[in-house]
Write a protein that binds this DNA or RNA. Structure first.
Length: 276
DNA sequence: CCCCAGGTCGTCA
DNA sequence: TGACGACATGGG
């Protein structure tokens, strides 16, 4: 067990707001997440974060990175507030909310699955893939399956994916995995690209459009300057700002919030989700 | 039974 | 460019 004292973290909202899919809320209000090569249980005890895992190697650093605990959100929030003072209440309500740093490969598969799909079904498909091709881990007497890496999926066919309930996205996942394994798509190249080029590079994959690419950049690559525009955001921006299409929204958000626009979108999503 | 899910693709003006 | 239907699946 590891304890990180005095963290500024809203664990529940951060875990459950749609950044990751494979997590379990436990009876003691802790969360068990399946993270790359291990299973981790996270629990807040007052302001301390209690961490347990089947694998404690480098665990504290991994969780600090995963939950973005090293970033100074106070500075970000101040910058955001400077750009738009009307965000005061929203920003305050998002205290402790973090943009997670999620595993790249799994995140891309997850968000390919997310198109025209609902969260429980996305989760089910990810679990199916993991149970079939991922390594088994026993943690506190329970069985879990890690999400497989690209090598483990190299021989999986479109039909295999279909049988795991990925729906019509089966071919997209297949093609993406093939391209990664054949070095036709380089996950590390993203780090060296600016945000616009990274988006253009991501959408060269079938099944990845602008929204999915934005989620990938925001969550897996920590690009806080992208803003995933989906049906929810469109509706919200129309109702509150009278912006009627994607172009108008992009222009508005980019002009006002620039390098923090991803944070801005996550904050208003989070705020409105909790409001009702 | 119909509708929808934090979309994207292919097709046709 | 821009609009529009199709798309697998499961839950309401």
């Amino acid at each position: 067990m590891i304890k990180i004292k005095n963290v500024d973290l809203n664990l529940k909202d951060t875990i459950t707001c749609g950044q990751i899919f494979r997590f379990y809320e436990e009876d003691d209000n802790s969360f068990t997440v399946i993270l790359s090569d291990r299973v981790v249980n996270l629990k807040m005890n007052n302001n301390d974060l209690i961490i347990k895992s089947n694998n404690e190697d480098n665990l504290e650093n991994i969780i600090i990175g995963y939950l973005d605990l090293d970033r100074n959100y106070n500075i970000l929030n101040k910058e955001l507030l400077k750009k738009d003072e009307t965000l005061k209440d929203i920003i305050e309500s998002c205290k402790g909310f973090k943009i997670m740093k999620t595993p790249v490969f799994e995140t891309i598969i997850s968000f390919i699955l997310s198109q025209n799909n609902s969260v429980p079904i996305i989760k089910k498909a990810l679990d199916n893939i993991s149970e079939k091709y991922g390594d088994k881990v026993i943690f506190e007497d329970k069985k879990y399956y890690l999400f497989p890496d690209q090598k483990k999926l190299s021989n999986v066919s479109i039909d295999d994916y279909r049988n795991l309930k990925t729906g019509f996205r089966d071919k997209y996942i297949y093609e993406f995995v093939q391209k990664v394994n054949n070095n036709e798509f380089d996950l590390n190249k993203i780090y060296s690209l600016n945000t616009k080029d990274a988006l253009d590079y991501l959408i060269t994959n079938k099944g990845i459009g602008m929204k999915v690419a934005s989620c990938i950049l925001l969550f897996a690559y920590q690009r806080l300057d992208v803003f995933p525009i989906d049906t929810w955001v469109k509706k919200y921006m129309k109702e509150n700002y009278n912006l009627n299409n994607q172009k108008e929204i992009e222009k508005y958000v980019d002009e006002r919030y620039k390098e923090y626009s991803g944070l801005f979108i996550q904050y208003i999503f989070h705020y409105n989700r909790n409001k009702k």
